[in-house]
Nucleic acid binder design. Structure first.
Lengths: 242, 242
DNA sequence: TCAAAAGTGTTGACTTTACACCCATGA
DNA sequence: TCATGGGTGTAAAGTCAACACTTTTGA
């Protein structure tokens, strides 16, 4: 870390003063913004600007404005950081340990978001904002590692029940790309034939009669998610016993 | 409603003044406290003391204190209302619509709790606090109907994966009681033989070599949940694709 | 002609469902 | 003796997992 960077850091004390309006209890949203780059699941992180967490990365978040819905605050964070506003976003849970924020009492509401990394040609280099492979993350500022893990757990839970994973892919994709993405999220190897069978039973995909181009092997068919499944809000899962 | 009751009601305005400390954004917890009385799943509700919701019932909740964990606040509400403190409690999600509370901006974090109704011989008659069959609830104060429905959905989701349902039963129970409880929660009829098979595979239960007494039919064996499953905190569900 | 992945079915193991009879108890 | 639920097994259907060969393309 350079001298210059050190001087720019806020302390918990200075942040507390600048956000004084919020402190009895402050409320924020934190977004686990996930993307996929053909190999790995990645999360968008920013270098923490708090001295207490110097050198660590943190999730993207902000305080909620008094006249702003929870979802609106999350969408605002997303829009500010990625330029995207038509994205999948789902609340996971609230985190509220007394000591989780060094500036004072801050309860945060965690969201996870799935975006197609090809859609944002944005200012990633600003603000030390970067994609990080989720599997390589050991430690984050605040309790953000715990938040990340909780959100990844929720994603794994949703992924076979609901067609949410497609938010991470471009509009047209091959079954190979889709399978690799499932494998990246679930952390398992899947049998190719069984995978294709399972997906075809779900009847989520539309065969658009196009083929891959510029692949160094036999091109596969391209598919797209059927329109009726392209909602950006998740539904509640209801499992049945019998 | 009597004249006397009307006079006691707070208005949003008076509540706003008395809770002024909390308002930029107020944060509360709301508890969906569920019990089971051998026939139905019931939820503990209190008659709303806000004029805006006069005649309606609401969940039990309170504002979070600045030095209090989210879970601690929920446990406090439970303890105050039921006298119980060793109960199952799990966070579901936060609700934060701008207009959800007439006194101002209040974000609430919803918990659901499972208790054995036989354990609390408490002051139910005070404060118009009563058990209500969940299936008969049409409308509640605030957005509490939505919160209730969301919590019930979460309960249904958890119930076959994790041994949480036993928190609603006395320590010793028969398989019939257990089956009826599953049916009440899931809203389905289950085949008795298949149910017993499925439960026995899970290996959650200990045969304590006692029989039901005072039943008007052949007494069934009594079981108890094995000690290793008797934790009061739920675990995250992780579903696997293959 | 090689490397890489596409495309495609079958079998056996396991899981789930549907279903019926006799037994023990209290009223 | 009747009503109620206890206790128990099997067969058929459905689902899931394992597995291999031929084809198409680009290098």
């Amino acid at each position: 870390m350079t001298e210059r960077t050190l001087q720019q850091l806020k302390t918990a004390e200075t942040e507390k003063i600048s956000h004084l309006d919020y402190f009895n209890i402050g409320i924020s949203v934190d977004c686990v913004i996930l993307g996929y780059d053909e190999k790995e699941l990645k999360v968008l992180l920013i270098k923490s600007d708090m001295q207490e967490f110097s050198g660590l990365y943190s999730l993207l978040g902000d305080f909620i404005k008094p006249d702003e819905d929870l979802e609106a605050a999350s969408y605002r964070v997303l829009k500010e950081r990625t330029g995207l506003d038509d994205v999948f976003l789902e609340q996971v849970k609230a985190f509220g340990n007394i000591t989780r924020h060094p500036s004072g009492r801050v309860i945060t509401i965690a969201y996870y978001s799935l975006i197609d990394v090809r859609n944002h040609k944005l200012q990633l280099d600003l603000n030390e904002l970067h994609w990080h492979p989720v599997n390589e993350i050991k430690k984050l500022a605040f309790d953000h590692k715990q938040i990340l893990d909780t959100c990844l757990g929720r994603l794994r839970q949703q992924v076979m029940e609901h067609p949410v994973i497609f938010n991470l892919l471009p509009e047209k994709f091959s079954l190979r790309e889709l399978q690799k993405l499932y494998q990246a999220i679930l952390g398992v190897e899947l049998d190719r034939r069984n995978f294709r069978k399972k997906i075809s039973i779900k009847d989520w995909l539309l065969d658009i009669d196009e083929m891959e181009v510029n692949v160094p092997h036999r091109p596969g068919k391209l598919y797209t998610l059927k329109k009726q499944y392209r909602n950006k809000a998740a539904k509640n899962v209801v499992l049945q016993m019998a």
